[in-house]
Design a protein around this nucleic acid. Structure first.
Length: 590
RNA sequence: GCGCCCGUAGUUCAGCCCGGAUAGAACGUUGGCCUCCGGAGCCAAAGGUCACAGGUUCAAAUCCUGUCGGGCGCGCCA
């Protein structure tokens, strides 16, 4: 039980007693008690405002009620030295130093498990994140989703949830056809043909790489005369036509000329290369998935899309209009109804998405978390509507939005567009500023906050990035322990000598360490890994201050030396635990 | 036009969910600290109309309403 939980239970106990005595009615007090760390040490260690909240409805003055509450808190509590009423009616708790020393014991005992919580009660949660279309390399926008999603999944894991990480691979649909066609056209160029590349094709260099593979394996076998390829097509955008119509016609031509088998080969060449690249990229970023879920698998071999449509139909939520099949999502709070099957017989992306979410539900997750780019926010009501229509609770789905990161190089704002091929990839970012800095920087801001990422700043002025500050603290602890190993001394942890840690700097550091379990719970419940980054900075700062003032490896006082070493090892453990959660390394040396 | 997000120190951001005591931090600026375990560090100072206007409250950066400013979304696209 954490320090805070313990204190919390004392208040609950006191208030329940007051209820039994009829001082407070059951309606007024439902059991929520806010217990907060006091910001000012003159206010003690923890402060509670419950008396002020209840005073009016109880019909007493806040300070009077506070008095009664205090009287029901066990007097000889081993951890509390003083309870006082302050200001308008705060109840301030002052803790004994050994209440905190207990924390050091806990950390040294629990090690990498310190701070873990049972909050999640083994509930299973799926976190689906990144899920970028496999039409090109991940860019810096995806990086933020990756860093945030992975840190969140880690947080939920240590908060007691069973977490499943999943990447939804959009390997069906028109974008993939555009990719295949783009690859084939580049292949034709490698065969020596001269063509005009479509405005709406994928223009990145990686398309050339895939085409080169194709050319290496098949030489001219997939070649067709350019005259046939471009015969009788509508005008492309630069010629005054519609780029969408043009690319669709080109896709059809491509399928027709290559035939089913050869087209699928080109298609899978592109998909395979890009997906493997994305997977490798994420692994190198420290993000590993439990499952890569293929959109195609929703239709082959079993057609989940048809199944979910039938299920909706059976419930009477579908209707036909103008040749299309519609889902009456307005019944479930959406602002307009949505098409599931188009006039041309093709299912929409939304139909696949319904099937995917039905599939998720059938796999038995208690909680579904989707991490999406903020530009998809308008999509949330219809997915929730679908879940409701399928008979499940829409609240089992939580969609967390991540704002795009805007990259700057100094004053220059970098444009990102997959189509134009001028984006900055996640890989480039990693190679530029390093994995640790990138992951920390991404997760440092609240996810719905716009992120301005200045590459020059992150690189040239590394002081601006607190990740170094925290890692340096960890490296320093390691350095001291290396020194210890070289000495004739041996560290023995003894609870008895911890009371020697009595200076303000040491006390402040211990208090900071004691907050870790609270931060884990708070960050997990709010889905806010950024809380952890602020916390880790706080720990590092208290450590640096302590380190500057008090030497650890002192010769003359063995008991004090051991006590300080215990504190140092505990600090190292907390820093390492926290950094691990956000995917940042805890280096022994820098 | 409708919907969602954002507006806090020169800059980048916490704090807002769940109202509470003197609104915090980093960078930058200014001034100090290296016979000592790693100075990638420490100590200190200056810097605020919490976008604006109302409202609720004993108490508002926080809750409600409106206004202004910035971003995004409103397809038989994905």
């Amino acid at each position: 039980m954490t320090l805070k939980h313990h204190l919390h239970s004392l208040f609950t106990h006191a208030l329940v007693q007051l209820q039994e005595q009829g001082v407070i009615s059951k309606e007024i007090f439902q059991g929520d008690i806010q217990l907060e760390r006091a910001r000012d040490s003159r206010h003690g260690d923890f402060a509670c405002n419950i008396a002020m909240l209840l005073a009016k409805t109880v019909g007493k003055r806040p300070r009077e009620l506070a008095e009664q509450i205090i009287n029901h808190i066990p007097a000889q509590n081993e951890w509390i030295t003083k309870i006082e009423i302050a200001g308008p009616g705060f109840i301030n708790l002052f803790l004994a130093p050994h209440a905190y020393f207990q924390v050091i014991d806990n950390i040294l005992t629990d090690k990498e498990n310190y701070g873990h919580s049972q909050m999640g009660a083994e509930k299973s949660v799926m976190v689906e994140f990144v899920s970028a279309n496999p039409t090109g390399p991940l860019h810096v926008g995806h990086g933020r989703g990756a860093a945030y999603g992975d840190a969140l999944a880690n947080l939920l894991t240590v908060a007691g949830y069973r977490v499943h990480r999943e990447y939804y691979v959009n390997d069906a649909g028109r974008q993939m056809d555009i990719l295949a066609t783009s690859v084939w056209l580049r292949y034709l160029e490698l065969c020596g043909e001269t063509i005009t590349f479509p405005a709406n094709g994928y223009q990145g260099d990686y398309i050339w790489d895939i085409a080169a593979n194709l050319h290496r394996e098949h030489a001219q076998a997939l070649q067709h005369p350019v005259s046939e390829v471009f015969q009788n097509l509508p005008l492309d955008a630069p010629q005054g036509g519609d780029k969408e119509e043009y690319i669709d016609a080109l896709i059809e031509r491509c399928k027709h000329l290559l035939g089913e088998v050869a087209y699928r080969h080109v298609f899978h060449e592109g998909l395979g290369v890009i997906l493997a690249d994305i997977r490798r990229d994420l692994e190198q970023f420290g993000v590993v998935y439990d499952h890569w879920f293929s959109e195609t698998s929703l239709t082959v071999p079993e057609n989940f899309v048809q199944k979910s449509i039938k299920q909706l139909q059976a419930q009477g939520h579908l209707y036909e209009q103008e040749g299309a099949l519609w889902f009456r999502s307005t019944t479930f709070g959406d602002e307009k109804d949505r098409v599931l099957v188009r006039e041309n017989g093709q299912a929409t992306y939304f139909a696949s998405d319904i099937a995917y979410h039905l599939n998720k539900l059938e796999r038995g997750f208690n909680l579904l978390i989707n991490i999406w780019g903020a530009d998809h926010h308008g999509y949330i009501p219809r997915v929730k509507a679908a879940i409701g229509a399928l008979g499940a609770d829409p609240n089992c789905l939580t969609v967390l939005l991540v704002q795009f990161a805007t990259l700057y190089r100094g004053q220059e704002r970098l444009q990102m567009s997959t189509r134009s091929g001028e984006f900055v990839t996640l890989r480039e970012l990693r190679e530029d500023v390093g994995r640790d800095a990138a992951r920390f920087f991404y997760v440092q801001r609240k996810s719905e906050q716009h992120l301005n990422f200045d590459l020059e700043l992150a690189k040239s002025q590394s002081l601006d990035n607190p990740v170094y500050y925290i890692q340096y603290a960890h490296a320093r602890t390691s350095s001291v322990l290396r020194r210890l190993a070289d000495s004739q001394w041996i560290w023995t942890h003894s609870a008895a000598t911890l009371h020697r840690l009595e200076t303000p700097q040491e006390q402040a550091l211990i208090v900071s360490l004691s907050r870790y379990p609270e931060v884990i719970e708070s960050a997990a419940v709010a889905y806010e890994p950024h809380q952890l980054t602020y916390y880790l900075r706080d720990v590092a700062q208290h450590f640096h201050t302590c380190y500057d003032v008090h030497k650890v490896l002192i010769e003359e006082d063995e008991a004090l030396r051991n006590a300080r070493l215990s504190l140092l090892v505990a600090t190292q453990q907390v820093l390492r635990n926290g950094l691990t959660l956000i995917g940042v390394s805890a280096p022994e040396m820098m």
